[in-house]
């Protein structure tokens, strides 16, 4: 039996790595979306781990719903990204500042 803390620490490490990825990859929205996927993965890890150790199946049901929401989210995000690239020829976060002020 693996202690529950190991899984939680693993998911914490992945989550903080994806936060660091969001900070590092300012030039590329695509990699930023991938960091978001990693973040969802670590959250799913937490839900499955705690559901397994509490003997409750609700955690896995929630992971199921998170998976569907993430699939819709990544489809919409990538569509927005394509529209953005069509209009601005760039996917840099710094090029998005359109408001004057």
């Amino acid at each position: 039996m693996i202690p529950i803390s190991y899984y939680l620490i693993l998911s914490t490490i992945i989550f903080t790595l994806s936060i660091a990825g969001i900070f590092i990859n300012r030039k590329n929205i695509l990699v930023l979306l991938m960091s978001l996927e990693l973040m969802f993965l670590s959250v799913n890890f937490n839900l499955i781990t705690l559901g397994n150790y509490l003997g409750d199946l609700t955690g896995q049901v929630f992971v199921f719903f998170v998976l569907t929401v993430v699939a819709a989210e990544s489809a919409i995000g990538l569509a927005l990204l394509i529209v953005l690239f069509r209009n601005k020829k760039s996917i840099d976060v710094d090029d998005l500042s359109e408001l004057k002020g």
Partner: peptide, 26 residues
Amino acid sequence: IFIVFNILIILFFINTFENINYNAIS
């Protein structure tokens, strides 16, 4: 940010689940 968050959360996790009752709602 990676180091700070890791230290904070791992310090929280490391002793929290020692005495958990696994069969509480099994």
